[in-house]
Every structure is written in C-alpha cells, then in structure tokens.
Amino acid sequence: MLTIVIQLIINGLLLGGIYALISIGLTLIFGVLEIINFAHGEFLMLSMYASYWLFQLLGVDPYLSLLVVIPMFFLIGLVVQRIIIQPIIHAPPLNQIFVTVGLSLILQNVALFFWKADYRTVRTAYSTLCLKTSGLMISFPRLVAFLLALAIISILLIFLKRTYTGKAIRALAQERRAAMLMGINIYGTYRIAFGIGIACVGAAGAMLMPIYYAFPTVGALFVLIAFVVVVLGGYNSLVGALIGGLIIGIVEAFSGFFLSPHLKEAVYFVIFILILVFRPTGLFGRG
C-alpha cells in the first residue's frame, strides 16, 4: 500500500511539473495583461507539432528541440500579442474571451488542415525507458520533463526577480499607472510578458512530445487543467502556479487510481469550483 502511495505521489509530481509549466505561462499573461488566454492550449499543440516535425524531418531530439522551440514561441507570442491581443487590452471581458476563443478555433483548424486529425507520436530510444528502484517505477522521459520544467520555471522566477525587464513585468502586474510613471514602456512590456508566457507553454509542448500524442485538439485537454491550476494557486502568483500544478498532478494520480480514470477530471473541476467559491484568491494569491 505504502509503495502504491509513494508511486502515485511520484507519478503525480512528474505530471504536475508539466502542468505547472503550462500554467505559469497562463498566470503570467493573466496577471500582467488581465486577459485569460483561451488559446493557450493551442500554443501547446503547435509546439508539440513543431517538436514532432523537427524530429521527423531533421531528426532533432525533442529535448534538443527546446533550443529552437523556446525562442520560436517567444517570437510567435510577440507577434500574436501585437496583432490580436493589443487591440482588446481595454475591451470588455466578454470580447476579450471571444477573441482568444476565436484564435483557439483558428489554430486548432490550421493544425487539422495541415496535419489532419491523426495522432502523432515520436519514438525515441528512451520513450519507454523506466528506472526501477525498490519496487518503484519512474518513467525516464517523465522524469526528464519534470526536471526540465522545474529548471525552466526556476530560470523564469530568477529572471522576474533579478532583471530590470522582469521587475518591470512584476511592477506592471501590481500597479500599472505607477509603472508607466517610472518610465516603463507598458505596451512593450505587455508584449514581452505575453511572449514569455507562450514560450513557457511552447517548452511544455516539446517536453510532452516523447510521452504524449500530438493532435489538433490536444490543447483543449491541457488548457482546462491549466485553468484549474491557475485558480488553485492564485491567479496572480507564479509560485502558486508551480505548487498548484504539482497538487493537481497528485490529485489526478490519486483520483485516477482510487476512483476511476474517467472521474479524475470531474474531481479537479469540483476542486476548482470549491476554490473559486470559498477562496477566490487561490492558495497563494493576493486579494
């Protein structure tokens, strides 16, 4: 029994690392731009395809593809922000929601158009590699994904804490008018924040590729989880997104095992509603 519990915690944590990386991008975008990016999952999907094609056509290892995918998705983020998000920064919430929903519809179908509805996966030497110690099994690609996710999140947190641009992003999230009066170019900073958010989810996509399939609607699956994580952790707390991601990973592992794999999503959506109603600021959010 104890082994099972430990195994479930490990499974959950490994999964949670990726969730955290997806969610941290969503949190950053929401915290700074006050826009919920409903197309977030589609950027994950696109990066999975990017990683897939880099592997298929050029033989680039998915982990190595991060070096291409991260800067590429940062640039995509900058462009999308400028063209689509910028015009709706001061629009009513419903219009903001629908622009990103529309974007998500477009991207999903662009993928369907070019790459059909097939499930695609990459076969690497380590795809099914498993580390076994004292009755526990640790999937190698999941472990790598987890460690890489933590590394990227750490770099992001240090960047936000230490660099001028990072501080400007945080300042903008806390007090927009003062940021403007301190000489921060707020629109430029919005763009960078959006770019970083997309780069994070891009990285997550590349890291998912060895353990999951790419298909046009794969993003929808993950974006709902990311919403749960963001609300659980507190929509303006990046550390909250990290811990929220790990918690949801563990919840998923346990409810999948003890209840039913079909109910695991129902379980975390119930958690989601309870958090929203009883603690709308989340576990680590600020009022």
Binding site: Y164, K167, A168, R170, A171, Q174, E175, R177, A178, A179, L181, M182, G183, I184, R286
Partner: peptide, 28 residues
C-alpha cells in the same frame, strides 16, 4: 518625473525593489 497621488507603490515588492524600479530608464 511624476509622483502620483496616493503613492501607487508596488505593494508586493520590497522597498529596495521599488527604488530600483524608480531607476528604470537607461540614464537612471
């Protein structure tokens, strides 16, 4: 440089970080 009414500090940053953000422009 304008110091706004009601101060508008960055409440979740330290005093030092607030001051550093004051010196945000390349010249400063």
């Amino acid at each position: 440089v304008q110091i706004p009414e009601a101060r508008l500090l960055f409440p979740y940053m330290t005093v030092l970080e607030n001051l550093e953000l004051g010196a945000y422009t390349p010249k400063a």
